[in-house]
Design a protein around this nucleic acid. Structure first.
Length: 487
RNA sequence: GCCGCAUUCGUCUAGUGGACCAGGACGCCGCCCUCUCAAGGCGGAGAUCAGGGGUUCGAACCCCCUAUGCGGCACCA
């Protein structure tokens, strides 16, 4: 196997199953995916389920569903396996324990027996003094006798990282450049909890190394803890893979995106009627750009264009207006068949089912009017039921009176009656225009009145197409009823 | 409070010392098209490049300070 032709790029997305992934997490996943696909490397899914308390029952499913919806397929993961599994951290506890103990043996970490109460008290006092809350090294300085006493008593213990008190630690970040933090500002972080689970810090470093991860990408909010990871790599004697801290995705208030901002999970967007194509495109452009003018990127194009050096440093605000625009764009790109197919479930869910033939006929009428797939249900309201409800005054348009409205309806009726089907839209339109001309009315007036009579609204999809979908019988009944209401 | 990161139109961004009195896109406004609404086409408003000091013949781009915003400071990730 030639090393120059095979890519050794391995990137991982490592969410914790605490709920439906939100836009920010998924954007990270997208960058991981794009980098893997761009380089012909591997995209790996690893589940960081080391906090039993925060875990959600269907957390894993929500993650898989979100990734699948966007088509971010992974090469190795908890469901598909791979050569470096298991891919669920809760199934790797022995590995973490062994590594943590190795650090204790070499003096890079130590056992700590402090109770939650003591730590709590310590933090309160530090806060009262206006200090940064940080472990006070109590157990780092225990004598051998004291340790032995704790062990004899069977006290619960954790393993903490022995961070050097002096010096500073630097990480070369391919997005930010060199990041440096003084060691005195780094806490003696717990690596292995008393329940035998690792903390994030131990688990990421061990797994990223063992799984041969070549590029680490994660949110900006992890920057303050990179020294712990660097120190761990050094203590283990491992090479540090390139790291990149991605700028956060913000809500309109410039704060980190959260539930407060309304819909933030990918699944919510899916349910609202956003296309994966649009979401993918928008997400890619949050914190990344290709050049000074390209806005539209298909998945293939993204894979082709994506490079790490074009990742932005500053946080980006999630722009719903732009998402709507992109979504409308991708909806218009759909074929009528594809659109009808995607629309179908939205009518089902709204409990206003439409048969596929009707939907297929209706789809092209609303295609360029949709921002979201879910908008279609309201636009189709006049297709349901026999009659439509509206204020009769709407029948009388600008510069019209009841008599002219009635005249328009009567003229329309006589044209429509002659046709056994409404399939020949062009012919019907021509005849209706001629009728309008004979009455000396403006088309906007004539068609406006007919529109209200048939759809119950002053704004609707194109009239001829609408008449066709509503059908001859129902249309004529509605016209007759409108005429009667004008007496 | 301590530590860190960031800072170009409202928003996403282009820009790496002269091609920038700063380009594109979304949104907004106007016009055209038009049976309504959209879509589309055309045009417009919108950024003293956070502020202040330097360096330089020349700075959005380099250095320093300040301000503001955000993030982190758990046996959570």
């Amino acid at each position: 196997m030639s090393q120059t032709t095979m890519s050794d790029i391995r990137v991982r997305f490592a969410p914790s199953p605490t709920g439906a992934p939100h836009i920010g997490n998924i954007r990270t996943a997208l960058f991981d995916y794009l980098w893997a696909r761009h380089t012909g490397g591997k995209f790996i899914l690893r589940i960081e389920d080391t906090d039993q308390a925060r875990e959600v029952e269907n957390g894993l499913e929500l993650i898989l569903e979100s990734l699948r919806f966007l088509g971010l397929d992974w090469d190795e993961g908890p469901d598909v396996g791979g050569a470096y599994g298991p891919y669920r951290q809760s199934e790797r506890l022995a590995i973490y324990k062994e590594h943590a103990e190795r650090l204790v043996a070499q003096g890079a970490a130590y056992y700590c027996y402090c109770s939650a109460e003591r730590l709590e008290r310590m933090r309160r006092e530090q806060q009262a003094r206006g200090e940064r809350t940080q472990y006070d090294y109590h157990c780092r300085n225990l004598s051998p006798q004291e340790r032995a006493a704790h062990e004899r008593a069977g006290d619960p213990k954790v393993i903490r990282l022995a961070v050097p008190r002096e010096g500073k630690t630097t990480l070369r970040d391919f997005i930010h450049g060199d990041l440096t933090i003084a060691n005195k500002d780094v806490d003696d972080q717990v690596l292995l909890k008393s329940d035998g689970f690792p903390t994030y810090h131990l688990a990421v470093v061990v797994d990223d190394h063992l799984m041969r991860i070549s590029h680490v990408m994660r949110g900006d909010d992890w920057v303050p803890s990179f020294p712990k990871h660097v120190l761990l790599y050094q203590a283990f004697g491992w090479e540090i893979p390139p790291h990149g801290h991605l700028p956060n995705v913000l809500g309109p208030d410039k704060k980190k995106l959260s539930k407060r901002h309304g819909a933030t999970s990918v699944l919510q967007f899916r349910d609202e009627g956003y296309l994966p194509e649009a979401l993918l495109n928008l997400l890619a452009r949050l914190g990344w750009s290709y050049d000074d003018k390209t806005e539209i990127f298909s998945r293939a194009r993204l894979i082709e264009c994506f490079t790490l050096d074009k990742i932005e440093r500053a946080p980006a605000t999630f722009d719903r207006d732009k998402l709507d625009w992109l979504n409308g764009y991708y909806i218009r790109e759909l074929t009528d068949d594809a659109l009808a197919e995607r629309l179908f479930p939205f009518f089902e869910r709204a409990r206003r089912p439409l048969d596929r033939a009707t939907l297929r006929a209706f789809a092209p009428l609303i295609k360029e009017r949709l921002k979201k797939l879910s908008d279609a249900v309201a636009m189709a309201d006049f297709l349901f039921g026999d009659e439509v409800e509206y204020d009769a005054r709407l029948l009388i348009g600008k510069g019209m009176d009841a008599a002219s409205a009635r005249a328009a309806l009567r003229a329309a009726q006589s044209v429509l009656e002659k046709h056994t089907t409404f399939d020949d839209e062009a012919e019907i339109e021509a005849e209706l225009r001629a009728a309008s001309d004979r009455l000396g009315m403006k088309y906007a007036q004539f068609f406006g009145t007919l529109r209200v009579a048939v759809t119950g609204k002053t704004v609707s999809p194109p009239l001829m197409g609408s008449l066709r979908v509503v059908g001859r019988a129902k249309t004529l009944r509605r016209v007759a009823r409108a005429e009667a209401s004008l007496v």
